[in-house]
Nucleic acid binder design. Structure first.
Length: 272
DNA sequence: CTTTGCACCTGTTGGC
DNA sequence: TGCCAACAGGTGCAAA
């Protein structure tokens, strides 16, 4: 579910309610997420103020003086800010209670997400240490991408979804960005030209920024921190539009499976 | 080292 | 109406 825009929207939504608030308690109802929630480690958070709320790739990072809480939303996760008294519902697996009467509530029906703890420098955490650049920074540019794709035999779409090449681009936005850049999802990474990388980096940045501006894409599970949906779903050009006309040339959009993920493309605009 | 395909889990949808 | 297979926004990991 949540790709970079949805995680960033979540970060922006929760940050004002968390910043400089003290954690009063942590309640874990279901510790079996992707990895076991380290309940013992989390107890040291109690009494600690949250001093920063940031994002790396699709991880949300809540920083305290003694370490950092990592939260990943997996496929179906969402976070909400609620009054502490709000009764939990099914799949509400954890609460972080704050001294302002609010709680940060983690919901994740499929439980592919994670809540982890790092007591050391966060950039050294095993899940973060080998990630590629953030797509919305200057370090992600056409020459970088061109170089990163040089000996890749994988398809271009798979390369875009490879965390070591660039983070945050999931299935929806990979489809959208490739269409915007008029590139085939099926060509090998190493077959790409520098000028294609120029178009592609621009397309990725533009797509992600637009999605953030719209509050993310809500298909099923995702909601913003106040419970409202994101509206980028209405701006999707390709994703979910099998057998509908391409918005650029009216050719019928095709859907195929690529590495067990749905790929939507225009056979005319995105020729190999 | 790179690439591939699976596993993890629940809920929804569509065809019969 | 009911049942069952297919599919869904991610990604680490074992195996090839």
């Amino acid at each position: 579910m949540p790709e970079l825009p949805e995680v960033e929207i979540t970060r922006q939504g929760i940050a004002p309610h968390l910043l400089n608030q003290t954690i009063e308690n942590i309640i874990v109802r279901q510790p079996n997420l992707r990895w076991p929630v380290p309940i013992d480690s989390l107890s040291q958070l109690v009494g600690q103020p949250i001093i920063n709320i940031s994002r790396r790739a699709k991880f949300l990072l809540l920083q305290t003086h003694s370490g950092t809480l990592l939260i990943h939303l997996g496929m179906s996760g969402s976070l909400r800010i609620l009054p502490t008294s709000t009764p939990p519902q099914k799949h509400d697996h954890a609460d972080i209670l704050l001294n302002n009467g609010l709680c940060l509530r983690y919901r994740d029906p499929r439980r592919f997400g994670a809540i982890l703890w790092s007591g050391d420098a966060i950039e050294n955490h095993r899940l973060l240490a080998h990630l590629g650049p953030e797509p919305l920074t200057r370090t992600f540019h056409s020459r970088y991408l061109y170089q990163a794709l040089q000996n890749k035999s994988q398809s271009l779409k798979q390369c875009l979804m490879d965390n070591k090449i660039v983070v945050g681009v999931g299935n929806i936005y990979a489809n959208e960005a490739l269409f915007l850049a008029k590139l085939s999802p099926f060509i090998e990474g190493r077959a790409i030209q520098l000028e294609d990388c120029e178009a592609l980096t621009k397309a990725i940045k533009q797509t992600l920024k637009k999605a953030i501006r719209a509050g993310g894409t809500s298909l099923k599970d995702f909601t913003q921190a106040d419970g409202s949906p994101g509206y980028f779903r209405h701006q999707l050009q390709m994703y979910g539009r099998e057998n509908e006309p391409c918005l650029r040339c009216q050719t019928i959009i095709k859907k195929v499976a690529q590495a067990n993920r749905a790929t939507y493309y225009c056979p005319s605009c995105q020729k190999p």
